[in-house]
């Protein structure tokens, strides 16, 4: 018997497609699945948002902010800000929250609405505002976020998305992402949510002061401070354009017959 040496088949076990086309196909597929997942998650969060009892939210807030709760120092400035917040919140008739004001030691001007009715303001924000009315509008805007439950929406999506990722084995499986950074990242809202919070905030300001002087001045100040919006803190950059917001606020004030001029209270 004679053996004829033959070379092995060079192609049959190799894929015919280029690895990069394979990669493109995979990424497109996964992105598609991701989009569908995100849409589903957003839908379920929207459903659950209005069903979450306030007790559960308070419990959630307790697990999120235990340190801050202990560290809250009741100094005079804090008390005055709290009083302002409470006074503004009176304009919201069916307010289920006991709003709490907390000051964050951060030089960036920023404010957040966090679960449990906690309004966070940074030292930078307190410094930048030049009258009570300016600051009051930012607080009223944050109250507007509570009304729209925006503070739970972003968080809910974030948590659910992480859960889904963890359950399919990617993302490290660390669902305890409710650290401070993760939380604040979950607190960025859509433009429409911001506009709605602006509108409600303006109503609160009118109810409290009888005029809306100072509302929006803060945005103008921010815009002047740093015209390159890319360099602005997240609180601002995820918001609609600053000038655009001021214009819209003026328009709305005129439409509702709010006075744009008035006596502004001195800085707190």
């Amino acid at each position: 018997m004679k053996a004829t040496p033959r070379l092995p088949d060079d192609k049959v076990n190799l894929p015919s497609s280029h690895p990069l086309s394979d990669a493109a196909q995979l990424i497109a597929g996964v992105a598609g699945i991701g989009l569908v997942l995100f849409a589903l998650i957003a839908y379920f969060v929207e459903l659950a948002l209005w069903l979450l009892p306030h007790e559960s939210e308070a419990e959630l807030a307790q697990t999120l902010w235990p340190m801050e709760a202990a560290a809250t120092e009741q100094d005079e400035r804090q008390q005055r800000l709290q009083a302002l917040l409470d006074a503004l919140a009176e304009g919201w008739e069916d307010n289920p929250y006991e709003l709490q004001l907390r000051i964050m030691d951060d030089p960036q001007p920023n404010a957040f609405a966090a679960p449990g009715g906690i309004v966070l303001v940074t030292e930078g924000l307190l410094e930048l505002s030049e009258s009570e009315n300016e600051l009051a509008f930012v607080l009223a805007h944050e109250i507007g976020h509570f009304r729209g439950r925006d503070h739970l929406r972003g968080l809910g999506r974030g948590v659910l998305f992480q859960l889904v990722l963890a359950s399919i084995g990617i993302g490290g499986g660390d669902v305890s992402l409710l650290g401070k950074t993760g939380l604040l990242a979950g607190l960025s809202f859509s433009r429409e949510q911001e506009r709605e919070a602006d509108r409600f905030g303006l109503d609160l300001i009118q109810r409290h002061y009888g005029h809306v002087a100072g509302a929006g001045v803060f945005f103008e100040r921010l815009a002047q401070d740093d015209p390159i919006s890319a360099r602005l803190p997240s609180f601002v950059s995820t918001h609609p354009g600053l000038e655009e917001r001021v214009v819209e606020l003026r328009k709305l004030a005129r439409k509702r017959g709010y006075q744009l001029e008035g006596q502004e209270e001195p800085k707190l």
Binding site: N13, D22, L26
Partner: peptide, 18 residues
Amino acid sequence: FLAGLRALIGGRIRAYEP
């Protein structure tokens, strides 16, 4: 990385074959 993505969709793991 490609195999990780493939694990979500299913199908031939072409990246491993060569």
